[in-house]
Measured scan of single mutants.
Amino acid sequence: SLNIVTVTLNMERHHFLGISIVGQSNDRGDGGIYIGSIMKGGAVAADGRIEPGDMLLQVNDVNFENMSNDDAVRVLREIVSQTGPISLTVAKC
């Protein structure tokens, strides 16, 4: 069973999320979106629970499971540009 973790980040303390995301597209185009790298000083690094290779399932109320990489990057950028905490739900691989 997948270990699902939801992390809520206070964006007032850390001014950027600090992750890159990578799409693992397979033949069907539904390989999922994964955490690529984590930048020091960002909210994700400070929290420490999300790691490279984790699968990104949801951000706030947006489901990322069947999203293309381009869409995921765009949607994540829109969410980060808003104010307030950000909740990331990942599956630990």
Rank of each mutant, 00 (worst) to 15 (best):
E65F: 04
E78N: 05
V90C: 15
V62H: 11
M55L: 11
L57T: 09
D54E: 01
A72F: 00
S81L: 10
D61T: 08
V75E: 09
N60W: 00
V80T: 09
V73W: 11
G29P: 13
E65P: 01
T6C: 09
G84K: 05
V22G: 13
L17E: 03
G32S: 08
G32V: 04
L76P: 02
N60A: 04
C93W: 02
L57C: 11
V5C: 09
T6N: 12
G18E: 01
S25F: 14
G84I: 14
E12H: 05
H15Y: 01
E78S: 09
V7A: 06
G18V: 00
R13Y: 12
D70S: 07
V75H: 06
N63W: 03
N66S: 07
V80I: 12
Q58M: 12
G31D: 15
D71P: 03
V80H: 08
G18F: 00
Q58R: 15
T6L: 03
N69H: 13
N26T: 15
G32W: 07
Q82I: 06
I38V: 15
V90M: 00
D70Q: 06
G23Y: 07
N63I: 10
V73Q: 15
I35V: 14
V5E: 08
S81R: 09
M11E: 03
F64K: 01
G32E: 04
T6A: 04
V44L: 04
N69C: 07
I4H: 03
C93A: 15
A72N: 02
I86A: 02
D61L: 03
S1T: 06
E65W: 01
K92F: 00
T83F: 04
M55I: 12
L2P: 06
A72K: 03
R74C: 07
L56M: 07
G32N: 06
T6H: 09
L9K: 00
L9H: 03
M55C: 11
N69F: 04
V59C: 09
L88T: 00
V7W: 01
G84N: 06
N3Y: 04
G18Q: 02
L76T: 08
Q58K: 14
P85C: 14
L56G: 02
I4E: 10
D70Y: 07
M11I: 10
V90L: 15
A91C: 06
S68H: 11
S87T: 06
I4T: 07
V62F: 06
A72Q: 04
Q82G: 05
S81G: 15
L56I: 04
N66V: 06
D27G: 15
L17R: 01
S81K: 13
I86D: 01
I79Y: 05
I79W: 02
F64R: 01
C93T: 15
N69M: 10
H14Y: 12
M55S: 08
L57F: 05
V80F: 05
H14R: 02
N60M: 01
L76Q: 01
S68E: 08
P85K: 15
T89I: 09
V7Q: 01
